[in-house]
Simulated assay, not measured.
Amino acid sequence: MGPDLGGDQHFRHGGPQPRRRQTGLLLSMLMLGGVAVLVVTVALALRESDSSAAAPEPGAGRAAPLGTPDDSTAGTPQSQAATRTVTADALYATGPQKTVGCQEPPVPLSKQANVKLYYSNVVACLSKAWAPKVQAAKDTFAAPRLVFWTGVTQTPCAAGSTVSFYCGTSETLYLKYTDDIKLWSRSPDAANRAFTRMWATYTAGHEYAHHVQQLTGILTAARQLQYDAPDQDARLELSRRLELQASCLSAVFAGANQSSYGITGLDLTIYQKYVQGQTGDENFRGGPRDHGARASHQYWTGRGFTTLDSVSCNTFTATAGKVS
């Protein structure tokens, strides 16, 4: 889900990058220092119930152990089936993702029409990229619906969200376009604009990844495991596995289309150092550990961006330390 812009929080993001001068390296380093300060002081972690699905609310029960899909003795029958889905879904065997030649729209994220165009373009690219993978996993592909909103929005999943999110029940990406405008308007420098663009691209990819999880059954299965989990700690770990997988799958798309999209130079530095490296639960001191620590986020997004393969995003067979 997208960033929370409430209170006095500040964000640095991006838009079309200005042409760099010969002195661009020193200037970029100075601007990156400003981004670092802002990223540390803002909540970049993904919040809210952005991956809600038609599944029961977490409650009492016994959690099926992850990483043992063939263990027929552990948990309820529903837990056993759910464990098999999240750990051994056919999506993991579909191989590396190929580029779809996705190109970034050269528009400033300064007004509603441009933000809608930007996200619509990225989501269309995501559909081209993920449709063959979902179909190769023997699941039915359908593109998600898009809803652009501000203020308050009502969905079948939740009410009162403050940031962009995905609702599995309606298979819809709810994108709060005003957040991107605020981020874009913070500063006109190249680093801020690069951050805004890379964050918007990442947000679209993360929320779309929840849609892929929904289509393949991983999202609903994970919710079943949360329902059967014995305690809050176990439920939070399952949430982190789900969210870190979505971030990893977002990075798979970004890596596969890195060349055509132009994630190079300052954009690549911003993407790797701040989007990948500074997104984590630490940004919400006192909040629930439901999306993963910065180190875990950097690890999984790095795997996705480098390997381009969904199997590298199988967080559900990873050790607990990898999804902290």
Rank of each mutant, 00 (worst) to 15 (best):
W130H: 05
K116G: 01
C167F: 09
V86E: 11
L91H: 02
Q78C: 07
D71I: 08
A45V: 08
P77F: 03
A74V: 12
A88G: 10
T85P: 00
S79P: 01
A158L: 15
Y166N: 13
A129Q: 12
A136C: 00
T150E: 15
R62G: 06
T153Y: 00
P56T: 04
Y119C: 13
S164Q: 12
Q80W: 02
P65R: 09
V42H: 01
R145F: 02
S51K: 08
P132L: 14
G59T: 15
V42I: 01
L38D: 00
D89F: 00
Y92N: 14
G75I: 09
K98D: 12
L146S: 05
D89Q: 04
T94F: 03
Y92K: 10
K133M: 09
A63W: 10
V122K: 03
D139L: 00
N121Q: 10
T41W: 05
A93F: 02
V147Q: 14
A159C: 08
L44V: 13
E171V: 10
L117E: 15
E48L: 07
A124W: 08
V163K: 10
A142H: 06
E104T: 06
G59N: 05
A36S: 06
E171D: 15
E171R: 11
S79V: 10
A82N: 11
A88N: 14
V107H: 05
S49N: 10
K98Q: 13
Q135I: 11
V107P: 02
A136H: 04
Q80H: 04
A82Y: 06
S170G: 04
P77S: 07
V100H: 10
G61A: 12
R62F: 04
Q103S: 13
T83G: 10
F165D: 12
V86M: 01
A158N: 15
S170I: 10
L46K: 08
